[in-house]
């Protein structure tokens, strides 16, 4: 437990999956993934739909615990500790590894409350106003909403809502932010804003983003992992490399086919 709460060492890996297999009941959704995520970098996970990208991403903060049939084999190491060990508290994990979802999902409360809530349940005792402002600023939303903090968050546009969700995640001070296709419900301009925001955030947070949009991965990430499906629909990781290498110079045939649009 102490390993989890100690401040980060100089180990450049933020989180690491070792021989991970993920199942839903008898169905093996993901097979034997080994993935080392570099700290304070943006890692993209790409691949055809249904290959288990979301499943892998959710495994990183135990969001899959809510699916009763979910089972996992292998280890996911966070600060050297397997987060699936029986003595690990998933609530604590999710505070330290936040998540932004495919569809913006603000609480039907005010903008202010949306941000304050997570911090409050996590026992934040400092100046809430400052925290809200700081988080909104980091999420590049402050200028747009600072006069309307009491407004219901559902009145914001989709892109604003998604940035609010990012701000909300930042406010609980995670180390890693998981993003599951955060832009798939947004228009191109809002998408660009989020990508810029990710770039800013990557100086202080590790970001893992699932995307089905290859341009986005190529544009916005430092590392890219390419997943695909095998015959039995089990997802596997095909290739993992620095983004520019993977896109310009893929080592595997499957990767090349995929990024050149030949399938998927």
């Amino acid at each position: 437990m102490t390993a989890l709460t100690s401040t980060s060492d100089n180990n450049s890996f933020a989180i690491e999956a070792r021989n991970v297999h993920l199942h839903y009941g008898s169905f093996r959704a993901v097979k034997d993934v080994n993935l080392q995520i570099k700290a304070r970098k943006i890692t993209a996970i790409i691949g055809p739909s249904g290959c288990g990208k979301s499943t892998v991403l959710r495994a990183f903060n135990r969001m899959n615990d809510f699916v009763p049939s979910f089972k996992m084999e292998g280890e996911i190491l966070f600060h050297g500790k397997n987060i699936y060990d029986p003595d690990v508290d998933p609530v604590q994990i999710r505070q330290m590894i936040g998540m932004v979802f495919q569809k913006p999902n603000p609480f039907p409360k005010s903008i202010y409350e949306n941000i304050a809530w997570g911090a409050r349940v996590n026992g934040f005792k400092g100046n809430m106003d400052d925290l809200v402002e700081e988080s909104l600023q980091k999420a590049a939303l402050w200028e747009e909403v600072k006069d309307n903090l009491k407004k219901n968050a559902l009145t914001l546009s989709g892109g604003q809502q998604q940035r609010l969700c990012i701000a909300r995640t930042i406010a609980v001070r995670p180390e890693i932010i998981l993003m599951d296709e955060p832009c798939s419900a947004l228009d191109p301009i809002a998408t660009l804003k989020i990508e810029e925001l990710m770039r800013d955030l990557s100086s202080s947070y590790t970001i893992i983003i699932v995307t089905h949009n290859m341009q986005q991965a190529a544009r916005a990430s430092d590392y890219t992992a390419f997943f695909t499906m095998e015959e039995d629909r089990a997802g596997v990781m095909v290739e993992y490399d620095i983004t520019s290498h993977l896109f310009v110079n893929p080592k595997k045939k499957q990767t090349e086919d995929y990024i050149s649009g030949r399938y998927g």
């Binding site: 809510f66 609530v91 936040g98 979802f101 809530w117 997570g118 349940v121």
Partner: peptide, 23 residues
């Protein structure tokens, strides 16, 4: 999605149920 949002912020089940779902 609302529940996931709360869990993703590190809320417990009770906090999610009472403070997010119930309202």
């Amino acid at each position: 999605s609302l529940r996931e949002a709360a869990y993703g912020l590190g809320a417990t089940k009770l906090e999610t149920s009472i403070k997010v779902v119930l309202p």
